[in-house]
């Protein structure tokens, strides 16, 4: 199954190697990995997506926690969460076919962020299927994709009561009770309204 781990790690040299090395050792391919600053001083937040057995999730999370520079780990699994990816797509476009691409960009609620006489750059954020959809449509429309750059997924649990927020506030993380009998199963208190 697809696992999504969200981790807070210390913003120090070599930390990413330690995280990546753990997956290398298990011979697990990392599908996507995004890292950047978080709301917590000195801590980076990363979202790591990989394919591994359902049971592996517990052990990977436990092993991540064993890394000295890892402060918090959440296995999002099937929990309600918002996942987004950013794509920059540079396509060949001349005055003749530009307007056709503009229409597509509109439909996908993407943006044109750069334009030259022979090419333009599209910026698109969304779920994976949305990004794949635009790429597919562009290809079908015989648009030449010159460059494609995708950020990889960023994931955040929906609702207020995420384990990391709770922990940051000094409370016990929820979902702890299931830690050992239902690995990967996550619950959430409160009702969430799906906004997107």
């Amino acid at each position: 199954m697809l696992h999504t781990f969200v981790a807070y790690v210390e913003d120090l040299p070599g930390v990413l190697t330690r995280v990546a090395s753990l997956f290398r050792r298990l011979n697990i391919n990392i599908n996507s990995l995004t890292v950047g600053r978080s709301e917590r001083e000195g801590l980076s937040r990363l979202t790591l997506v990989c394919e591994a057995s359902a049971e592996a999730g517990h052990r990977i999370r436990a092993s991540l926690f064993k890394l000295e520079n890892v402060v918090d780990v959440d296995d999002i699994a099937q929990a309600p969460a918002v996942t987004r990816e950013l794509a920059l797509i540079k396509v060949a476009a001349s005055a003749q076919n530009r307007s056709q691409i503009f229409d597509l960009v509109d439909v996908f609620r993407a943006r044109i962020v750069d334009l030259t006489s022979e090419s333009l750059m599209i910026e698109l954020t969304g779920v994976e299927s949305k990004i794949e959809g635009l790429i597919e449509i562009l290809r079908e429309a015989d648009t030449k994709i010159l460059e494609l750059c995708r950020s990889g997924k960023m994931t955040m649990r929906r609702g207020h009561h995420t384990s990391s927020v709770l922990k940051a506030m000094g409370a016990q993380p929820e979902g702890d009770a299931e830690e050992y009998d239902a690995p990967g199963k996550a619950t959430r208190k409160g009702k969430a309204i799906e906004l997107e």
Binding site: R59, A62, K66, Y180
Partner: peptide
Amino acid sequence: VDPAEINKNIKADVALV
């Protein structure tokens, strides 16, 4: 004492970590 050892090789019915 090491949570990464639980259910690694043999499934535990009760884990006291």
